[in-house]
């Protein structure tokens, strides 16, 4: 399985502490919000990367194992996302989505996070279009249905909701709590 990322770091064959040292360097090369894939053969890198992400404040998305190679996915943190005001007026709480799923309602859930974030856990049936690609791919979404836009914290989905409204979508709601507080069913692509 390959997951689309902004940067791939090859740390295969390197021993501790090189995988995290190289990861730190690679993080400097990407923009906040972008995702990197770290390839390593050092078994300890799994625990190291998780601990490193925790201490450095970046978002650890998950890891996959392909033979000898571990692939770790990290998203660079950025304060822009946290500080930005959410001001799209039409919002829903996570709970409402869970109820609609339970009731089997035909709703469109649009997940605007990065592909790697989506891969390691999303709402069942959610459509993945990262915020950066939304403008070009908006025609993939039906204008007639109710659309619930979700991201990690409700910030990117706020921007996405505004973009879509400008393009003539009428029935859009931003899921304000986002995946970080999601307690409903999760689907993983693995």
């Amino acid at each position: 399985m390959s997951i689309k990322t902004d940067h791939v770091l090859d740390a295969k064959g390197l021993a501790c502490p090189m995988p995290i040292v190289k990861t730190k360097k690679a993080m400097k090369e990407v923009m906040p919000g972008q995702v990197i894939e770290v390839q390593a053969t050092d078994k300890g890198s799994l625990a190291d990367i998780q601990a490193w992400a925790k201490s450095s404040g970046h978002q650890y998305l998950g890891s996959t194992e392909e033979g000898e190679v571990l692939k770790h996915y990290l998203r660079k943190s950025g304060d822009a996302e946290a500080k930005e005001d959410k001001n799209f007026p039409h919002t829903v709480q996570n709970e409402e989505i869970i109820q609609k799923l339970d009731a089997g309602e035909d709703v469109v859930i649009l997940d605007v996070r990065e592909p790697a974030e989506y891969t390691f856990g999303h709402i069942p049936g959610a459509v993945s279009i990262p915020l950066g690609e939304l403008e070009d791919r908006m025609d993939e979404i039906s204008k007639d249905k109710e659309i619930y836009v979700v991201c990690r914290t409700g910030s990117r989905s706020d921007l996405a909701s505004k973009q879509m409204e400008e393009k003539g979508f009428k029935n859009i709601k931003n899921v304000v709590q986002g995946m970080v507080e999601w307690s409903g069913p999760l689907e993983k692509n693995q």
Binding site: I20, V21, T23, K24, D48, A51, S56
Partner: peptide
């Protein structure tokens, strides 16, 4: 040097 670089990489 392992402890030092690992710590420095963790800011």
């Amino acid at each position: 040097f392992n402890v030092a670089t690992a710590a420095a990489a963790s800011d």
